[in-house]
Simulated scan of single mutants.
Amino acid sequence: MTGVEITPLGDAALEVRSARARELLADLSARPLPGVWEAVPALNVLTVLYDPLAVEAEDLAARLTARLADLCPQQAEKGQTHVLPVTFAGPDLAWCAAHAGLSVPDFVQALCSVTLTVAFLGFTPGFAFLTGLPEELQMPRLTTPRERVPAGSVALGGPWAGVYPRETPGGWRLVGRTEVALFDLQRPAAVLWQAGDRVRFEAGP
């Protein structure tokens, strides 16, 4: 099928490049393929880790191609929806509003009206790259990253939104903060969200 590229990564993984990679992940979660250990998503990429003693790369690639051809669009929409209460008082909030040509209240309202999607996880445990920002809410990254960004900071960087699960360095624009724990080893599922989940911000006190 067109628009799909499947290439080996070593002798126990295949990299699937497709605009429907997230849908394929949902399908593999619902209907696992024999010999597949894990599927790790990125943006329009799915890395499929498998047991080379249980399945050959060529056979697995053929099965993945067939799965992609049979996907229904609804299969990408089975994730959870997370509503994060946010205190919008970040150090870059006024700058971002001015950059968007909006007042601060209108900027906050615009940001809270957007439903974002977890494209993939990375950078630090629990950090989700959230896609779906309209162009007018996309902000340039800082020229010089901050050495310390507090845990829970809600940030905008390029086409992405994100929330810092822990205190780390960071170069995105900080617009608010949430108290929701995104990464907690005491929970059965330590990470709050998964690729394909939907996220909305809700203005709080």
Rank of each mutant, 00 (worst) to 15 (best):
Q194P: 00
E135D: 14
D70A: 15
P85Q: 07
L156R: 01
A76K: 07
E135M: 06
E202I: 12
A76P: 03
A155V: 10
A21F: 09
A54M: 09
W193P: 00
V83R: 12
L133F: 10
R63F: 02
A100C: 05
T65Y: 00
S103Y: 04
Y164I: 04
C96H: 02
W193L: 13
R31M: 10
V36A: 05
G170P: 07
L64W: 03
P159Y: 08
T117P: 01
V104I: 00
K78N: 08
L185W: 10
A110E: 08
V40Y: 09
T47D: 11
A12C: 13
F127N: 01
T168G: 00
C96I: 04
W95Y: 08
S29E: 15
V48D: 06
R200D: 09
A21W: 11
V191N: 07
D184Y: 12
P85F: 09
Q109R: 14
V4E: 11
W172V: 00
D59G: 07
L46R: 01
T117I: 04
V104C: 01
G35W: 03
G3V: 14
D92P: 01
P32E: 07
A13S: 12
S18K: 04
W160L: 07
T143H: 08
A128F: 10
L64F: 11
G157Y: 10
A13N: 05
G158K: 06
L53E: 15
